[in-house]
Each structure stands twice: as C-alpha cells, then as structure tokens.
Design a protein around this nucleic acid. Structure first.
Lengths: 144, 144
DNA sequence: CCTTGTTAGTTACATTTTCAACTATTATCG
DNA sequence: CGATAATAGTTGAAAATGTAACTAACAAGG
C-alpha cells in the first residue's frame, strides 16, 4: 500500500494553527500564570471585564466564546481572589453583573501592558501589512 | 482609573490564534472522533507514522511536539486497536520502533483523504498567495 | 394564575491533560 | 571496571475540561 506523497502534515492548517497557538499561548502564559496563578480562562474573563467593562457571565460566554461552566468557575476563582465582585441585577435575579475590584483593575492593567509588549514581540518579524493580513485571515477562520 | 483604550482583545494574536485553532480543530475532529473514536493526539501519532514511516516514540515526540506521556498513551491505545505494532530495537533495548499495521494504514489513508478535503474547505476563502502567506506566518510563529 | 418552556448559573461526574516519580537500559568518565 | 548520569518509556495522582443534570428565576399562553 503506497501512501500518497502529496500531503504534508506541516502544511495542514489545523495542525499549523494548533502549533502556532500553543507556542503563542505558552509565551504569554508566563505572565498570568507565574505572576498571578491564573488560568487561560481566568485571564480571558479578566480581560473582557477590564477592557469592555461590567457585564454578566452570559455576556462573557457569548463574547469570549467560552462555555458557561468555564466562566462560572473562572468567576468563582477571580471572586475568591478579590479581583471581581458580583452584583445582583434587580430586573433579573437570575443574572449577576460582574465588575472588577481595584485589585482586578490593577491586575488587568499590568497584564494588558505585558500583553501589548508580547504582541509587539510576536508581530515583530512581520511587516504591518503582513500582520494585518494574518489577523484578517485568523478572524475569518475563527468565524469572528 | 482609566483603562487604555488602544488594546483590543480581538486583535491580540495569542487570542486570535487560539480561536482559529479551536475552530479548525473542531471541524476536523468530527472525522477521527466519530469515525474512529480517536483523540487529537492519537491521530497525530497515526499521521506521523502514516506520512513519514516507522519511527520510535521519541522521534514522534520531537517531530510532533508532543509530550512523551501523551505519545506513550496514544501508542498504547493505537496498539490496542491494532493500528500499530511495536518492534524492539536490537541496538537499544529501551526504544521501540513503531509501525502501522494494514488496518492502521487503511485508517490513515481514509483520514488523510478527509484531511485534504477539509484543508481545501478551510483554504477556500483565500487566494493561493494568501494561503501561502498564512502558512508561512504560522510556521514562523510555531517556530518550525 | 398556573402549567410549560426558557434562561442564568452551579454542581457532579467522566474524560483528558499535566506533572512527578519510577523502571530499565545505555552512555560517560574517573 | 564501576559508579554516576542520561535517556526511552511507563505509571499514578492532581489539575483542568467537557458533558449532563440540576436549581432558581423569569416568560408566555391557555
């Protein structure tokens, strides 16, 4: 049985995307993990609240493409570490508005700064046009 | 405390890469998961052996950027399903050469065909130049 | 109102992944 | 040679993730 030669794993997009994503995640992980003991899902929640302001867990789920159980646990952990507070909504007592505490804002500010620096490092090998094209392609693939 | 406005999560490369990678993985997962009950790590091992021929677990670790425990478990599962055989190396009795069985080759051939079809679907929205640029950028980011 | 259906969020359980420790074998160097 | 280090691979426990079932509150139609 002869295997077709014209298929290289190294050009297979899902594979390449995974490798690139893992490598990129790893480099940034250092900051939120070693400094704050956070998980990827936790900083995503933190970033959403820090960048886009108060919102409910449901809104985070929709915007961040995270499952509600993930968000539920991330919120619980961030709350335990005093990075956010919950406020019950008067109109709908099922939902809670989540808001960063001062400590949460401080952590966000620090991580955002490092994120920007890391982003710059990642984008350094590309021209502005190349980086823009890359982001556009990734957004398309991510169905954003 | 005013948050800097010039940072958008939606343009942060690690975030975009993760979303795109998850989306791309999900679409292909259907094939190896529903048809063969495989995990992502298992088809990676299968693909490496199918595409590049016999090799040891160590070589797969290095080439596929997978941890040895992951490979060890994937190999055990693929062996249990008769997709591969182990052969002890005479020169070094610690290592084992892994080779696909006929069944393994058949599974590889089918999955490879579907991978090619899926790849074509993913690349469809791009011109040949765009797709090439994307792959090149991803390889750079993945440090390949 | 009151049954039925939907939604926000949590909890429990199974599956995966990760990390550290372990065995067996080979390599190195005094 | 013989002790020590390094390497291939496995195993067990802990952490994380995904799936499904659950609670509590709201919505809507009879």
């Amino acid at each position: 049985m002869r295997d077709e030669p014209d298929f290289d794993l190294k050009d297979f997009l899902p594979y390449l995307l995974n490798l690139a994503a893992e490598e990129a995640s790893l480099g940034f992980q250092v900051h939120y993990k070693t400094r704050y003991g956070m998980l990827r899902t936790e900083w995503r929640v933190l970033f959403h609240l820090g960048r886009y302001g108060e919102m409910t867990a449901k809104e985070i789920c929709d915007r961040a493409q995270l499952h509600k159980t993930v968000v539920s646990r991330a919120v619980a952990k961030l709350e335990a570490r005093r990075f956010l507070r919950r406020r019950e909504m008067a109109q709908d007592r099922r939902a809670e508005v989540l808001a960063l505490t001062d400590q949460g804002h401080a952590a966000y500010a620090e991580l955002r700064t490092q994120a920007q620096a890391y982003e710059a490092r990642l984008a350094a090998p590309f021209t502005a046009q190349e980086a823009a094209a890359l982001r556009k392609a990734l957004k398309l693939l991510a169905k954003l």
